[in-house]
Simulated scan of single mutants.
Amino acid sequence: MMKWEGVTEFVYVVDAGSFTSAAKQLGISTAQVSRQVNELENRLNTKLLYRTTRKISLTEEGRIFYQHCRQVLDGLEDAERAISNLHMSPQGILKMTAPVIFGDQYVMPVVLDYMQQYPEVEIICELTNQPLDLVHGGYDLAIRLGHLKDSSMMARLLTNRTLHVCASPEYLSRHGAPHTPNELAQHNCLVGNNSHWRFMEEGKQRGLRVKGTLNCGSGSVLVEAAIRGLGIVQLPGYYVDAAIADGRLIPLLQAYQEPKEGIWALYPHNRHQSLKVKLLVDMLATQLLSISQ
């Protein structure tokens, strides 16, 4: 126990900028704070603080010691919070956003399970394909697909997805199958939100602009159009896996397929300790794992 004595007082003095302010925050006397820090310095045989009548400042040894002690105290606070959360039930409003189709088909069923388990949480969910400003909009959580661009947010990988190029047997019997991405220029490509399809060639990512007779932001509509023989699609596996499995769609250009890309939970830094957010993200990570298989 001797090793801990004075550490909390020392960190509070540095953070508060004075012995008096630290004493007020700790609820003890200034003399007691001063005594504990003095004893800490004696035990370490090292001067940690320069003291004047106006201010205190860290010695070089004090700066190094403070950095380590601050991390230790932060870790203890996190540990106490984790134990406390075990005995708490999440409550309050959780505001989130997710892509329209993916959110409707995959995210919201998990959210409904979450609401049944934690009835004191009120969910506000905006399904949109626009990348909303989480901080300005007051959002606790966003589900994002693919490559992340917003480095100011905290992110957790929930699962992965793979993009597949495919067409129906009927289409291929009439038009033949492309053997390289460049041959897509001779085919009718059914386009979603992005008219640049992605491939890997010689170890490098390549974006290829495609065009066709249908441009629609709904993956479900594009799958149906492809099954009816109207053209070729590039879509994530969770749209086309069932149709590929039963032969209604045939995978193409597999040698040029990109590696799996992430499906992410994104949240502002001040939300990551929230119990209601953590429990929902944990549930999403568990239940969405199956779509990457």
Rank of each mutant, 00 (worst) to 15 (best):
P251R: 02
G27F: 03
G229M: 07
H87S: 14
A82Q: 09
E202I: 10
W4I: 15
L48A: 09
H136G: 01
S292I: 01
P99C: 07
A245S: 09
E120W: 00
Q130R: 04
V11Y: 04
G212I: 09
P181K: 11
D133F: 07
N129Q: 12
L184Y: 09
S57W: 05
G247P: 02
I93F: 05
T20R: 13
H187N: 11
L145S: 03
E39F: 06
I93L: 12
P99V: 03
A243V: 07
E201W: 06
N38K: 12
E77V: 15
L280D: 02
I232S: 02
L76K: 08
E170W: 01
D150Y: 03
M154H: 09
V110M: 00
R206K: 15
S84N: 14
R174A: 15
V72A: 14
C166W: 03
D246K: 00
S218A: 14
G17I: 01
S168L: 06
A242I: 08
L289I: 00
R156W: 09
N160V: 14
A16L: 11
L284P: 04
M283P: 04
N193H: 15
S152A: 11
A255D: 14
M283R: 07
S292E: 06
R35K: 15
L58A: 04
A177V: 11
T128M: 01
S220G: 07
T159I: 03
H147G: 10
T97P: 00
G137M: 09
E126C: 07
Q116I: 13
E39K: 13
V165T: 15
V11N: 03
S274C: 12
H164W: 13
S18R: 05
Q257Y: 05
E120C: 02
E39M: 12
I143C: 00
R144E: 03
G207F: 15
M153R: 02
Y267V: 06
G6D: 14
P178I: 09
H175E: 15
I124V: 14
V37G: 08
H187I: 12
E170L: 13
C166H: 04
C216Y: 09
L73S: 02
I250T: 14
I83R: 10
P268L: 09
L58R: 05
L76P: 02
S34D: 06
K24V: 12
L94M: 10
F102M: 04
F19R: 12
G27I: 05
F199D: 04
V233I: 11
A23T: 08
S18T: 14
N270C: 10
P236E: 07
L158R: 01
V281T: 06
M283Y: 01
L127H: 09
I123H: 07
G203Y: 09
V210I: 13
D113T: 08
V210H: 08
R161S: 08
V277A: 01
K95Y: 03
N188P: 07
G92H: 02
T128G: 05
A185T: 13
V33A: 12
I143S: 01
K3N: 13
T159C: 01
G92P: 08
G229F: 03
N188W: 01
L26S: 12
E80R: 15
G137A: 11
Y118M: 08
G138L: 05
H187L: 12
S151H: 06
F19I: 10
L127A: 09
C189M: 10
G237K: 00
L134I: 04
Q186D: 15
Q234Y: 05
V33K: 12
T46D: 13
Q186A: 15
A245G: 00
W264G: 10
R206N: 12
